[in-house]
Design a binder for these strands. Structure first.
Length: 160
DNA sequence: GCCAACGTTGGC
DNA sequence: GCCAACGTTGGC
C-alpha cells in the first residue's frame, strides 16, 4: 500500500514513459538537487506511487504512474568521469548523490497536460504549477494524485 | 532559441 | 556570511 505520493520529471527525449514501460524497472539517476535528493532519501518509501511527468515536452504533463521499488542507494553516475552527472566531490565512502529504482505501473490513457492542471478546479495548490517551481521530485497530496489519475483515465485497479 | 526564476560557486 | 557571476531548468 502506497503511503506517499510524488511527481517526478523526466525529459522524454532522455527517458520517457515508453522507455520505462519497455525496461519495466529503472534506476532514477541524475538527481543533482539537494532538495530533490532529500525527498528521495528521507521521505520516499518503497511502494510509494509517483506521477511520471514529461518536462521539456510538447505539451508538458503527466503521462503515467510508476512505483518506488528500492531503498535509497548511491547514484553510480556521480563516480563516472564520462557521465555528465559526474561529481568529483562525491566521496564513494559517503556518496553525495542518491537514487531509487522505479517500476512502471501504468501509462495514462489521456495525458494530463500542465495546462490541464492549471485549469483544473482543485489542483490550484499543486507544486508543479507554482511559479518558478523547478524541483524534479516533488511531493503530491493524495487528493491531487487521485484527481490527476482520474483526469488521466487511470483507474484504481490500474494502480495495483 | 529566449529568458525568467532559481540554485550553486567562489572571491572577498 | 554576503553577493555577483554563472549555470540550469523548463515553459513558451
Amino acid at each position: 500500500m502506497a503511503r506517499k505520493y510524488w511527481l517526478m520529471k523526466s525529459e522524454p527525449d532522455v527517458f520517457s514513459i515508453d522507455d520505462l514501460e519497455r525496461v519495466k524497472v529503472e534506476p532514477w539517476d541524475g538527481i543533482r538537487n539537494y532538495q530533490a535528493r532529500n525527498f528521495m532519501r528521507d521521505d520516499m518509501q518503497e511502494g510509494d506511487l509517483a506521477l511520471f511527468y514529461h518536462s521539456n515536452a510538447t505539451p508538458p504533463g503527466v503521462v503515467g504512474v510508476m512505483r518506488i521499488v528500492s531503498e535509497v542507494k548511491p547514484d553510480p553516475l556521480a563516480f563516472d568521469p564520462d557521465s555528465k552527472y559526474f561529481d568529483p566531490k562525491s566521496d564513494p565512502d559517503n556518496p553525495r548523490w542518491l537514487l531509487r529504482d522505479v517500476e512502471f505501473v501504468v501509462k495514462a490513457p489521456t495525458q494530463v497536460t500542465l495546462n490541464d492542471i492549471k485549469e483544473a478546479e482543485g489542483l490550484e495548490e499543486m507544486a508543479v504549477i507554482r511559479r518558478g517551481q523547478r524541483l524534479s521530485i516533488q511531493p503530491v497530496e493524495k487528493e491531487h494524485f487521485d484527481q490527476v489519475c482520474k483526469m488521466a483515465g487511470i483507474k484504481k485497479k490500474d494502480l495495483k
